[in-house]
Write a protein that binds this DNA or RNA. Structure first.
Lengths: 222, 222
DNA sequence: ACATTTCTGTTGTTTTTACAACAAAAGGAA
DNA sequence: TTCCTTTTGTTGTAAAAACAACAGAAATGT
């Protein structure tokens, strides 16, 4: 635990807490650290989620299997992200998603149920913690809405321009670097990779954008 | 305010509060009630959101205008829903969505900022309130993920079957009634209405489903 | 009951996308 | 460097969806 203390302290979910408060919380939550290898399933669809998972290292995908085989990537999570935080609040709710480790990961696991039952009123730090959770969930909400906006566009071109425009706004610059490679971007936008590459080429030719690998320049105000 | 007291009391955001607590909260939050007519814009993209909006009556759409004209419906909100709750937590964040009244509405507006600044520690009911908000946001999160699942399917048929299957699960029955009419369902699933109607007919012919108006029977386990 | 409006289903045509197969470029390892 | 692997770009074809236009059904108002 000591090895990861700084990381834990700097994570959004413990934001603004002094060391002594953090120590108290970790104890109260029965915090444990668990390691997962790429390919491991951390949460399986159907599991009852009663714990909070904080990614300290590694990558995790939130996926959903459709009944006819196709796998949908809902979110890609990294360091400092929480897994399935929204499922903790709705008690005794089965998970409807899988959380799959895609890059060797270290996860901090907090027994939220136990703690919230015990110290809802007693533990003075609980209030700050739940406010942090609320903020995290809010942010996630905004991101999900953004994803819906992106994939709700009706053509590949519109999806790309909307996505790039959103990224540009977030970076407050018309030059920015994206987090996805081409296949991942296609998965995120729910389109065919080759068709997307073709459309990117066209957009470049027509002077709307420029790019090299993951660095993009949005030349038009969309 | 008295006219809507029971509605307010029974809303999820004030869940579990006694009358005296509710009174105190409403005062603390500087609660006001505002009426909107169908067509009114309640929140405009660019607004800074510092208040909590609770729908007591009427319908509200959360929409996003794409830069090339098309309007995307992100969510349809009704009685007991909160508008843009996720934007309140991220302080000083501009709204990136429009909230448009689609059926004459009565909205309870709470000055969250003022209250949370004043009584974060003082007001003993604030804790319960934020836990309620957390739960609401969690639920919304789960619904957004479900929408992403639905619209991420690659064919109209798969979108329909996924949506119907999810509805069936929620109703714990293979017979259920859906909340959308055909045009609204097509908007929600991001597909063309007529193409959707055609696919529904095929699914009925092939024996996968049966339906009459908004009542559906899912005959297969998908 | 009748007229009018709204909602739903059907069909043909055009446009867009997915898919497959391959080419070119970039990145790593020996 | 060279070989091999991974990523990205290109093209033709087949499949799917959007679109438009209309017909029939259901709901609504008078």
């Amino acid at each position: 635990m000591q090895k990861y203390y700084q990381k834990i302290k700097n994570s959004p979910i413990f934001y603004g807490m002094a060391d002594f408060e953090l120590d108290r919380m970790l104890e109260c939550f029965r915090a444990v650290i668990k390691h997962y290898e790429a390919g491991d399933t951390i949460i399986r669809s159907g599991d009852i989620i009663t714990k909070i998972y904080l990614i300290l290292e590694g990558d995790v995908n939130i996926e959903k299997d459709s009944y006819w085989g196709r796998r949908i990537i809902i979110q890609k999570l990294h360091e400092n992200n929480n897994i399935a935080l929204s499922l903790v609040a709705s008690k005794n709710t089965e998970s409807n998603i899988n959380a799959v480790c895609t890059k060797d990961a270290t996860i901090l696991i907090l027994n939220y149920e136990k703690c919230s039952a015990m110290c809802q009123n007693a533990c003075m730090h609980h209030g700050a913690f739940i406010r942090n959770m609320f903020k995290i969930l809010s942010k996630e909400n905004v991101e999900l809405i953004e994803k819906i906006e992106n994939i709700s566009q009706k053509s590949i071109r519109d999806k790309l321009l909307t996505y790039l425009s959103n990224e540009s706004q977030k970076n407050k610059s018309n030059m920015f670097e994206i987090q996805f490679n081409r296949q991942e971007l296609a998965d995120y936008l729910n389109i065919d990779r080759s068709a997307m590459s073709f459309e990117l080429s066209k957009l470049k030719q027509e002077g709307f954008i420029n790019y090299k690998k993951n660095k993009f320049i949005l030349k038009v105000q969309v």
